[in-house]
Amino acid sequence: MIRLENVTKLYGNQVGIKNLSLTARPGEILGLLGPNGAGKSTTMGVITGYLTPTAGRVEVLGIDVAEHPLEVKKHLGYLPEVPPLYDELTVEEYLKFVAEIKGLRGKKVREAVNRVMLETGLAAMQRRLIGHLSHGFRQRVGLAQAIINDPAVLVLDEPTSGLDPQQITEIRSLIRELARDRTVILSSHILPEVSMLCRRVAILNHGELVAEDTPENLAQRLQGGRMLTVTVRGPAAEVGELVRGLPGVEKVDALEGAEPESCSFSVVVSKGKDIRPDLFFALAAKGYPLLELKWQSTSLEEIFLNLVTREPIPESAAKEEAAAL
């Protein structure tokens, strides 16, 4: 369980995050999504105790991070954006050191090292110097150090960055496996990753929470109206007119590349309306066979762009502009 309550972090006058409230529950992967500089890493910094918030309260497993940092850190696994590695050590030496630092002793050290090397596919690399590893393997070592103490809370900053597709699939299934009984929070600017892994997504922009929901709900909420794709065998002009005339239709755009003698349209439907039955009967009455009818899903990528490019002009800026004139 991770809870942020009205957390603000300022770097001098620069806003890192502003009045951010977030909750991640056990067994859940919470995705932090946002462009560079949105405040994802700062959020992770205050959760892990690396940064002290300027205002607000951060709780991990019900423990206040500011009051009992050491207690929180015992239950934490953190993979920063740049994996914290010592190039002069071998993979095995490094993981052994991390295990000891995280409080494992005796036989448990060896067991933990062997377990995480197996889980992250590092067994063959254990005697290699970290400085000689490729980017993908360095990332894995970073992940291995984060999970070595079997933490209840995992904070992963861009865990799959720089990995090849095969490795990404492996790491994703590992994260899913780990999330079963843990609280996981991960950041990414790769949208498919977040929608694939996370049950809930928090979108940050300029240090503020823009939206927080399931990927599906975000898609719905954002669209306002929903979109249908319609393909009909019949003359484009007439069919277009017919569709436009139905109640609940907001906008109709012709789509390219329909089959011969057919036409395709993208239809925006008002929120809460379902025009499909009406559409079917209207077309049937005219004798135009309906070839295809389906709801379009907006990809998270579109939502993301939608959310972060919608930039309200702040009052002060508007005033300044007026004053300048």
Binding site: T48, G49, K73, Y78, P80, V82, Y86, Q145
Partner: peptide
């Protein structure tokens, strides 16, 4: 090297 983040978030 970024290992400060590790040391400062370790117990």
């Amino acid at each position: 090297r970024g290992t400060a983040r590790f040391l400062l978030t370790a117990p």
